[in-house]
């Protein structure tokens, strides 16, 4: 599904050039659940942003189902995100002014297709993460775990081909963290492809493959034996 070829990302600011990603090569197949691990500043989030097309590589190729996304323009990428990707963040990033149901529906708002059965899809997504009873609440009225489940519902409401999760359990306690991992696992079992950045070795060990990064390079890629 995904193939990264010699991806590089350099930042230039005030005449100082820093390399966030140096020559990244790896691929992800459809239906995989991949965890990316590594110390702070190793380039995990940059890599995830690259995969999510909110950041562009300085060099290299990003092929998604054979499409070279590194060459596409902003508008095409925006549609790509709207139709193909689901994002989950450490800090949830729910919009304060919208209710939970509205936040989730926002996951469909930028797709250029009909409005048909949006409501059902939103309800189905809320059911899957178990927050239907909070549909009319605002984000600040929910616990962290509930907020993250809502964020996951927003990510999956459009049936994305790929879910990108940036430390989804980072702001949660153990119990809520386990719950969120359970949801992601069941999504994966239902066929979703997931790439997750995490600091938690325990959570990384739960998934199908683990990629270790250091100083902007992939240093290991270990598949879990089942």
């Amino acid at each position: 599904m995904i193939e990264l070829r010699a991806i590089q990302r350099r930042y230039t600011s005030d005449e100082v050039e820093t390399t966030a990603l140096a020559d990244i090569n790896f691929s992800v197949s459809a239906g995989e659940f991949v965890a990316i691990m590594g110390p702070s500043g190793c380039g995990k989030s940059t890599l995830l942003n690259m995969l999510g097309t909110v950041d562009r590589p300085s060099a290299g190729q990003y092929l998604f189902e054979g499409r070279d996304l590194a060459r596409e323009d902003e508008t095409a990428l925006a549609q790509f995100r709207a139709r193909t990707l689901g994002f989950v963040f450490q800090s949830f990033n729910l919009i304060d002014e919208l209710t939970i149901a509205e936040n989730i529906e926002l996951g469909l708002a930028y797709r250029r297709d009909g409005r048909g059965n949006r409501r059902q899809r939103v309800e189905a997504a809320m059911d899957r993460v178990g927050i239907s009873h909070r549909a009319r609440h605002y984000p600040h009225q929910l616990s962290g775990g509930q907020q993250q489940r809502a964020a996951i519902a927003r990510a999956i409401v459009g049936d994305p081909k790929l879910i990108l999760a940036d430390e989804p359990t980072g702001n949660l306690d153990t119990e809520n963290g386990a719950q969120v991992m359970g949801i992601l696992d069941s999504l994966n079992r239902a066929g979703a492809t997931i790439v997750m950045v995490t600091h938690s070795p325990a959570h990384a060990d739960l998934v199908g493959r683990r990629i270790d990064m250091l100083d902007g390079r992939v240093v290991a890629s270990v598949a879990r034996q089942i």
Partner: peptide, 13 residues
């Protein structure tokens, strides 16, 4: 944050 989220969800410029 709102803007970022909208972009991630597929809103273009």
């Amino acid at each position: 944050r709102e803007v970022g989220m909208r972009k991630v969800l597929g809103a273009d410029r």
